[in-house]
């Protein structure tokens, strides 16, 4: 499963290939396809908050582009989706050698996470 990343401004999940957030329009990467450094899991929540706030402040000063490059519900072709998936997988593997973000931390219908467990075992 390719990983998604969080937009630091609106906190919505987006595909890693996005160069701007389809929900708020924030430019989230300088280079198409490059991992947005503000979103790496190595940063703490507080750090991400600070980085996000800084970006948001910059955007606010510079003028935010509210027009998403692509509508969040635009239909994609199978070919496009397949390309994006492969690209996301490749990027994820580069960023997370040996694993990716914990995307399999699904709760059973009954039961919760507990204080002695961690969601830090990465899924290959």
């Amino acid at each position: 499963m390719p990983s998604m990343v969080l937009c630091p401004s609106c906190k919505r999940h987006v595909f890693p290939r996005e160069t701007s957030c389809p929900f708020c329009g924030l430019a989230i990467s300088a280079e198409p396809g490059a991992p947005p450094h503000a979103l790496t899991p190595e940063l703490s929540r507080a750090q991400r908050y600070l980085v996000g706030a800084a970006i948001a402040a910059t955007v606010a000063v510079a003028g935010c582009n509210n027009q998403p490059a692509r509508g969040p519900n635009d239909v994609q072709t199978e070919e496009e989706l397949a390309r994006e998936r492969q690209k996301a997988i490749d990027e994820s593997r580069e960023r997370h050698p040996g694993g990716g973000p914990c995307v399999d931390n699904v709760c059973p219908p009954y039961g919760c996470v507990f204080p002695d467990e961690a969601c830090d075992i990465l899924r290959v």
Binding site: D104, N105, A118, D120, I121, R123
Partner: peptide, 12 residues
Amino acid sequence: PETTPAPRARRP
């Protein structure tokens, strides 16, 4: 907190 792997999390 101190943690150990979640039993239900998929491991490599």
